[in-house]
Write a protein that binds this DNA or RNA. Structure first.
Length: 352
DNA sequence: AACGCGTGGTT
DNA sequence: TAACCAAGCGT
């Protein structure tokens, strides 16, 4: 029997009941697909509800400030997704008269939408015959047909895409794509797949040849670098200082406390000297209240070791890149998870 | 075209 | 515990 028929029937009986599967609204499909880029379904569901609740349609998203979109995205990671969502919403208003485009090429040309997401939206929301190849689908295809090429290379991408195109059920591409993805997510797992539950178990190359642990081939891990962050939590009356992170680094446009960064640990004595120098202070106008424990924050390509130095100031900071924020308002700023954890550990209250 | 971008669950 | 991994994209 044909692959698409087997997987499609398996999907109809075994698919999860997920919120974005109750709609064919392209805006909602789009939001769900972007949330799910490199993100687990379980983590994405709550964000999806919050997002649709806050921005029910593309116009609501487009007229929002970027800061508000980033705030909603806080905790989900890969913040370029939020920036691109906002840009794309504006483009849909400006270029497509507020109507989500139905042509594949128009969808693909929106910021943050690559070939996978364009195919997913075109097929799921508009029923167009484009095969969506994500990590799940590549894994299923690799094992099913014994493809030994890495799916993350240029030639590999083309190969998987070609095979996916051949396998696509053109009468119902939306169902087919979701079925392939769902099979990879629930049955054809990266490790210890549940082959006895698989509708393709009788025709799977990897199962027949015991190649499952080898397919698909993975790319070697790149090394991670260590960074040492010393956040200075300046208290001035009932305010603290924040600054916005700039381009070409992690957490772009998110807010954080004034930062001293180093490529190695700094002793407490040396740190205080650096702070006084860096922020143009005198030791008479500050009072070091506490230095936090060391936080270890693991990212894909770097390990951040962070400490938070709580300092009471008796004089304002000069530089205008630092923003004086009342305690009560810090929750309206989008901050990295690391900052959020610290605030949770040590609430911003001035000791009496 | 290889690399950087977050976070949290799983093993 | 640390490594691995997740509905990718932009540069």
């Amino acid at each position: 029997m044909k692959v698409s028929k087997l997987v499609g029937e398996w999907y109809d009986s075994e698919k999860r009941n997920l919120p974005w599967r109750k709609t064919s609204n392209p805006y909602k499909i789009w939001i769900s697909e972007v949330i799910l880029q490199q993100t687990r379904v379980q983590q994405g569901v709550d964000f999806y509800y919050r997002f649709i609740d806050t921005f029910p349609d593309v116009n609501n998203l487009a007229i929002s400030s970027l800061d508000n979109v980033l705030k909603l995205w806080q905790g989900l990671g890969y913040y370029a997704r939020a920036r691109n969502l906002h840009r794309a919403a504006k483009k849909i208003i400006d270029v497509h008269n507020g109507i989500f485009p139905s042509e594949y090429s128009d969808i693909k040309n929106l910021p943050g939408i690559g070939i996978y997401t364009a195919a997913a939206i075109a097929s799921i929301a508009f029923g167009k015959p484009y095969a969506a190849v994500d990590g799940n689908v590549a894994r299923v295809l690799s094992r099913l047909f014994g493809i030994e090429e890495r799916p993350d290379t240029i030639t590999g991408k083309k190969k998987y895409q070609d095979i996916a195109n051949d396998t696509l059920d053109k009468r119902n591409p939306g169902r087919h794509n979701q079925a392939m993805i769902e099979l990879g997510a629930l049955v054809c797992l990266p490790r210890n797949p549940l082959c006895q539950l698989c509708p393709l178990q009788n025709q799977c190359y990897a199962k027949k040849n015991n190649y499952i642990p080898l397919l698909p081939p993975k790319k070697p891990r790149t090394e991670t670098t260590d960074r040492y962050f010393y956040y200075v939590v300046f208290y001035y009356t009932s305010h603290i200082y924040l600054q916005q992170r700039s381009n070409r680094d992690i957490w772009e446009l998110l807010y954080e406390f004034p930062l001293i960064e180093s490529n190695q640990e700094i002793s407490k004595e040396e740190l205080l000297k650096i702070i006084i120098d860096e922020f143009k202070l005198r030791s008479t106008i500050l009072n070091v209240l506490k230095i936090s424990k060391r936080y270890k924050h693991q990212l894909t390509h770097q390990t951040i070791y962070a400490r938070f130095i709580k300092i009471k100031l008796y004089k304002k900071l000069d530089a205008k890149k630092f923003k004086l924020v009342p305690f009560a308002e810090i929750n309206s700023y989008a901050v990295p998870r690391l900052i959020d954890k610290y605030i949770h550990d040590e609430p911003l209250l001035l000791p009496s």
